[in-house]
Write a protein that binds this DNA or RNA. Structure first.
Length: 933
RNA sequence: GGGCGGUUAGCUCAGCUGGUUAGAGCGCCUGCCUUACAAGCAGGAGGUCGCAGGUUCGAGUCCUGCACUGCCCACCA
């Protein structure tokens, strides 16, 4: 049966077909390995997908991350690991709630119009409607996740685990409830954590207001960037050391506009060098003032409501929005002569990460996680190397953050999320708060039956921080945990290092303390020591960010978001993945550039056509021929030597050469992937496949394939076998980066071998030393040099493409001359040469000659060369040689260099010196010969 | 206010632990529809590696300073 590949490469159809096939065949599903099963002998590789927001849409950042994950995952699977990539989605509290609220707004409704229950129902509907989108998109990317284990952070079992964690932490005294200043978003109407506040430098003002000192004609001047908060002032602080205010100790000031007498206190919050040295204290509206207020027992006067509108405590300003109030306060202060200064001032304004609204520090009752004990262990885990962070510089960033961590406000005044498992007794004035796994029937204090669950939900990151173990069945002790925990690796973007990675480490170390991975499980090598199995993962790889072609960070607001599906639509998933891989040098952000993708689509097309070429010949010469590589299975104890190219019978120079080159590439690619140098892996494969396999090898074997009618087919058969096996190996090498085209061609090659389900399960090529042939590589390099030299001369002499020219060749070494003689038909074919005449002496003093240290080659062609152009060329050439030679001699003449540089380098320079001398002399003679001035 | 990264060909980027002649893709120029591929083939032009010092036998690579640029972190009014 002839192999079928359509004439042109159309990625769309191929890619969707294989994506469906992989899922239908459950190719990437990993059943729980049972104890003592043979498979347990295989090492385990586990990767948790950073869960995208359930209602999210795929953007280039996702695709970038997932491409890298998929490459690593497929690579491990092919290398014989039991490979689990665990997918899921996050309920994304604020983000999702906002979307649904926006949707409601179209109907002119607010969430309170519906009420909590109805609203949540609506979110679930929304989730059902849009929730699968991102997963469908992932399928299009070819992400080889285990779809059978897909989770959602609000699944019942995960929710139960969240409650369990909360209750345990509460019982351990690590979760507490209290009234503190938190970051409040007036638009989202909820508290948010420090991490969710983004600071932005803006030009603002610093106003100076004077407060009259009671019982004196003096004033004390304070400075503020938020004058409206003065309505809630309960003191003015000055520094003890500040002589200017020493005499005011114990006195009071009359708060303007409010007519309230407030004390002057001594506190180091006031720094003499800053502003006037006196500072207003508003304990209900500023975290520093809050602390100062506690130190001095000051009342807390909250002058705003949850919308940041002024409340009854703001007197006549009640009802005004905070900025309107600011304006009016300033006007009034000015009128009454209290406003004495206004300066330009740059301030770092905190904004809500989600909606951009300016944050209001607000006094409110919240739940906090006492972080220090957790952080201590999380620091230890990284410092001790139980978790390694790559690239290394993120390690310090992580440690800095962890060392300066504050308690985490985990409660949110939202409706969508895990509701805090706490109940308030509303029986009379009891107010007892009960934290429990399930709703209690009676109050534990007063015995009353009227209990109400706390309305708050938990920060989204609270539940996602638990995923490494909750997705494996925690709190139950499961076989999955014994096998897959700790996960091997985490690949993620820097953005969520603190939000997510840090929390997972804290929670993992805490809740999995004492956990031990089944001793029979071999973990992947290269991921640090197995000292402590409570960590959620052994290594974290932080990848860079994708920017647009102008290096701008992509954001919906800017409208510069590149939709990967558009790119995929035009160039194919494989080409898009290859682009991302080829640009993914660790550490640096990438500017997504479509012209690259276009180039890699051309690469896919090149592979496609090479495959068509192969099939054309196989069908003609040896129909039914299949490669051998797929018949060996990964992880079955085959020695590495057997994982190279199988069934390859090197019978010619080009055979020996390509086999050797292939093994070098395999070595480099494995090496590159081990250290996340995706770009290097991609480039190596690209250069090999196009630059060596297609440009040289395929061209060189054509004479063997195009045998004469009735001639012996045996060398054609060998050529075919080699071709097929090499192609098979190359596809396997390529597969992690370009899974679709490799699968398509691979199946065509193995057509009718049903036991081979997918190239994704075939072994990954490894370096096989016995297949390296240094002599072949050297000889081939000379041959390539010769062919290129002839092509150069032809081009300079403007020889018509179709004309075959005779050449004269002088080779110093007999061995090399013999080698060229043996391969003269290759030279003839690839350089369009009619016949080769070997000269017995050097050919340097002739025009139309190219020289290297190994040979002189002369193209015999009657057309007169362009003397002027040739002169210019030769002069330039000579100049270059002289320059290098001078440099070369300078170094060799240096005694220090000869003494200190490695012998290899010195020797290299000496050899080069000889070459250069020879080339210089030849070039000079040529110049004379032609008669250049 | 701290910390981190970038600056290499017209454009987008490689260049790992310092070592002989700094690479690729795209674009550009020349010639080819050569029976796998014009999404191709062959050849070519194009770079004082941001600036100034330093270390070294030797610096795109290490150190210092500067300039420009981007990012992150930060409860000083």
């Amino acid at each position: 049966m002839p192999h079928e590949l359509s004439k042109s490469y159309e990625p769309g159809a191929i890619e969707t077909r294989w994506a469906d096939y992989w899922i239908k065949e459950k190719l990437f599903s990993v059943p729980t390995p049972s104890e003592g099963r043979a498979d347990d002998a295989r090492p385990v590789f586990t990767l948790l997908l950073p869960p995208p927001n359930v209602t999210g849409r795929l953007h280039m950042g996702h695709m970038f991350g997932q491409t890298q994950m998929d490459i690593i995952v497929r690579w491990h699977r092919m290398r014989g690991f039991t490979t689990l990539w665990l997918p899921g989605t996050d309920h994304a509290g604020i983000a999702t709630q906002m979307m649904v609220e926006r949707d409601l707004a179209k109907e002119g409704k607010k969430r309170r119009d519906l009420g909590r229950e109805k609203f949540i129902e609506r979110v679930w509907e929304w989730k059902k409607l849009y929730g699968g989108a991102i997963l469908d998109q992932m399928k299009r990317l070819g992400a080889s996740v285990d779809w059978d284990r897909e989770y959602f952070t609000m699944d019942e079992n995960l929710s139960r685990a969240v409650r369990e964690v909360f209750v345990r932490l509460y019982e351990e005294g690590l979760i507490y409830r209290g009234k503190y200043i938190v970051n409040w978003c007036p638009r989202c109407e909820t508290a948010i954590s420090d991490l969710e506040v983004k600071h932005e430098e803006v030009a603002g003002k610093l106003w100076e207001i004077r407060y009259p000192v009671v019982g004196s004609s003096e004033f004390i001047t304070v400075a503020t960037t938020r004058p409206e908060t003065m309505l809630g002032d309960t003191a003015v602080a000055v520094n003890e050391k500040d002589e200017r205010y020493r005499h005011l100790q114990g006195k009071k000031v009359l708060l303007p506009l409010m007519g309230r007498e407030i004390p002057i206190i001594l506190d180091e919050i006031a720094q003499p060098e800053f502003g006037t040295g006196a500072v207003k204290i508003t304990p209900a509206h500023d975290p520093n003032d809050f602390e100062a207020g506690k130190r001095h027992n000051l009342p807390q006067i909250d002058v705003m409501d949850e919308h940041a509108h002024m409340n009854q405590n703001a007197g006549r300003f009640k009802g005004l929005d905070r900025y309107e109030a600011r304006k009016r306060v300033l006007e009034d202060l000015h009128e009454q002569g209290f406003l004495v200064g206004e300066k330009e001032y740059t301030l770092a304004l905190g904004k809500c990460d989600r909606c951009g609204t300016v944050i209001e520090p607000r006094l409110s009752e919240q739940w906090f996680l006492k972080i220090q004990p957790l952080a201590d262990r999380a620091i230890e885990a990284v410092e001790s190397g139980e978790i390694t962070i790559v690239p290394d510089n993120y390690r310090q960033i992580y440690l800095n953050w962890m060392n300066n961590i504050h308690d985490w406000c985990v409660s949110r005044q939202l409706w969508w999320g895990h509701r805090i498992p706490a109940w308030t007794c509303i029986n009379d004035a009891c107010n007892e708060v009960i934290v429990a796994r399930e709703a209690p029937a009676r109050c534990t204090k007063c015995g009353g039956a009227r209990l109400e669950q706390v309305p708050d939900v938990l920060d989204t990151w609270f539940s996602s921080g638990l995923l490494p173990f909750t997705t494996l069945g925690w709190p139950k002790k499961t076989r999955d945990q014994a096998v897959f925990y700790p996960t091997t690796l985490l690949i993620t973007a820097y953005e969520i290092l603190f939000f997510w990675v840090a929390r997972m480490i804290m929670f993992g170390c805490h809740f999995m303390q004492g956990h031990e991975q089944d001793a029979a499980i071999k973990t992947a090598s290269g991921w640090g020591e197995r000292k402590n199995d409570s960590v959620p993962f052994r290594q974290v790889y932080i990848h860079a960010l994708v920017r647009d072609a102008e290096r701008q960070k992509m954001s919906k607001v800017k409208g510069n978001v590149i939709n990967p599906l558009d790119v995929i639509e035009r160039f194919g998933t494989d080409a898009t993945r290859f682009t991302l891989a080829a640009m993914a040098a660790p550490g640096t952000d990438i500017a997504f550039n479509e012209s690259r993708t276009e180039g890699y689509r051309a690469f896919a097309n090149k592979i496609w056509n090479a495959a068509r070429f192969m099939f054309m010949n196989v069908d003609r010469i040896e129909p039914g021929l299949r490669p051998d590589g797929g018949n060996i299975r990964a992880g079955t104890g085959e020695s590495p030597a057997q994982l190279g190219i199988r069934g390859f019978q090197p019978s010619t120079l080009e055979d020996r050469w390509i086999l050797s080159r292939f093994n070098r590439v395999a070595a480099d690619v494995n090496d590159a992937l081990q250290t996340y140098r995706f770009h290097e892996a991609a480039n190596r494969i690209y250069d090999f496949f196009w630059g060596e396999f297609c440009d040289w090898y395929l061209e060189l074997i054509k004479p063997r394939l195009y045998f004469e009618e009735g001639a012996d087919k045996s060398s054609a058969r060998i050529a075919c076998t080699n071709l097929v096996n090499l192609f098979d190996g190359s596809l396997r090498l390529l597969h992690p980066i370009m899974p679709f085209i490799s699968e398509e061609i691979w199946h065509a090659m193995y057509g009718g071998a049903p036991q081979l389900r997918s190239i994704a399960l075939a072994p990954y090529p490894e370096f096989t030393e016995s297949q390296v042939d240094i002599a072949a590589e050297m000889e081939m390099a000379i041959l390539q040099d010769l062919i290129v030299s002839i092509r150069n001369l032809r081009s300079e002499l403007k020889v018509d493409t179709k004309v075959k020219v005779p050449i004269e060749l002088f080779v110093h070494e007999p061995k090399i001359r013999r080698m060229i003689e043996q391969n003269s038909s290759s030279v003839g074919r690839l350089a369009n040469v009619e016949r080769i005449t070997f000269a017995e002496g050097a050919l340097a003093n002739r025009s139309a000659v190219r020289s290297t240290s190994r040979f002189d080659v002369h193209v015999v062609y009657e057309r007169k060369i362009d003397v002027a152009a040739e002169c210019e060329h030769l002069k330039k050439e000579l100049e270059k040689i002289e320059k290098e030679f001078a440099n070369n001699q300078r170094q060799l003449g240096n005694e220090q260099f000869r003494a200190k540089a490695p012998a290899k380098v010195v020797e290299g320079l000496r050899t080069r010196a000889e070459e250069l001398t020879m080339l210089r002399d030849k070039t000079k003679r040529k110049l004379e010969e032609i008669g250049c001035p």
